[in-house]
């Protein structure tokens, strides 16, 4: 599909928009529909579109497999780490009230970080899965 000019140009225009939209969904999830799961999937969809149009080799150089592996673990560790931090602050596991002086601010911060962790792991896993399948028959 690399030879198709229409696809290439449309993809180049639309991919940044998809990624930006994913970030909006990620950080606006508190107020409207959205959150880490949706944002992660949409973010990955942008990269998958890139891989479909420009080939898996291009995608692999854009997101190196080592970085993917790292990010997959990072998101989960971030989520679990927030729990450890709240425990160190003298509260229960994943009780975000302890993250700030004001319980509501603590909840807000905790939810933001946790959702970010979810988004990172979900998008990294989705891109990994796509690369594993699409890159299987590369010459």
């Amino acid at each position: 599909m690399i030879d198709n000019p229409v696809l290439r140009i449309i993809a180049k225009i639309i991919i940044p928009m998809i990624l930006l939209f994913a970030l909006y969904v990620q950080f606006h999830g508190d107020f409207g529909p959205g959150g880490g799961f949706q944002a992660g999937v949409i973010f990955a969809a942008g990269f998958i579109l890139y891989g479909l149009v420009f080939g898996t080799e291009a995608l692999r150089s854009a997101v190196p497999p080592a970085a993917l592996r790292l990010l997959t673990a990072f998101g989960l560790l971030l989520f679990a780490g927030v729990g450890a931090v709240t425990m160190l602050a003298g509260s229960d596991y994943l009780a975000y009230n302890a993250l700030a002086h004001d319980p509501v601010a603590g909840q807000h911060l905790g939810i933001l970080i946790v959702e970010f962790g979810v988004g990172v792991t979900v998008s990294a896993v989705m891109i990994t899965i796509f690369l594993a399948f699409a890159g299987r028959n590369d010459p």
Partner: peptide, 11 residues
């Protein structure tokens, strides 16, 4: 947080 789904999911 106004979105109850997010607050249940994360908190």
């Amino acid at each position: 947080i106004p979105n109850v789904v997010t607050s249940i999911l994360a908190s």
